[in-house]
Design a protein around this nucleic acid. Structure first.
Lengths: 107, 107
DNA sequence: CACATTCATAACTAGTTGGTTATGGGATCG
DNA sequence: CGATCCCATAACCAACTAGTTATGAATGTG
């Protein structure tokens, strides 16, 4: 079972996919056709990428007539933020230790 | 030319690699042998992963005698934090727009 | 010197992946 | 209804990847 950050990292590791997600974040909801225009890859490729992003919880889809609208689900980035935070917290912890040491040296 | 977040995402997309980096973050500096123990993969595999992490700027190596010590370079995560920040800022921006709209509706 | 240890590199392989073209299923239009 | 448009899926392929074993270079040890 792939853990939460694993799916996110894998989904965002591909440049085409990240570009699609960025576009959804910056420009808001888009249809598949809209995303395909300027993506530099074929429509099926875009659809497949959207499938991966959806699987990772990064995008939502909304069907309207014959087109599908995709939008970014930024909340899905939370585990990624948490992860980087955890990796940095330990750095800060060590920094705190250093501060404590300096304080004790001051006395 | 791969942009900065691209290298980071790709390097961290692999679970083995992320596990190695996490261990370096949490437990501090380690030798290759130490990292190999409990990694569940062979020593050459670990060395190769360390090479990728180093290429991405995520780890530093220090040679001492016949062993190589690796340590995490947490600052390298900065572009990743920036990226997630940029993706969220726009969400906040839209939220601000919504607040503005609500304010105007109040008047 | 002979031997052991530690790590990196080379060479190879199986599996994954990101792209393509082809096709089909609904929805819309005339 | 027939034609068209939008999207998803299928089938396939070239390229990459993550692992393996084998080997060697450099350092320490008896």
């Amino acid at each position: 079972m792939a853990s939460s950050p694993d799916l996110l990292f894998k989904a965002l590791a591909d440049p085409s996919r990240r570009a699609i997600f960025e576009r959804l974040c910056l420009d808001g909801e888009q249809t598949v056709g809209g995303l395909t225009a300027g993506a530099g890859i074929s429509q099926p490729a875009v659809s497949k990428h959207l499938g991966v992003l959806k699987q990772a919880g990064l995008v939502l889809d909304r069907h309207e007539g014959r087109q599908t609208h995709y939008s970014a689900q930024q909340r899905a980035l939370a585990p990624l933020v948490d992860w980087t935070g955890r990796m940095n917290r330990f750095w800060e912890a060590r920094f705190d230790d250093l501060e404590d040491l300096l304080k004790r040296m001051d006395q």
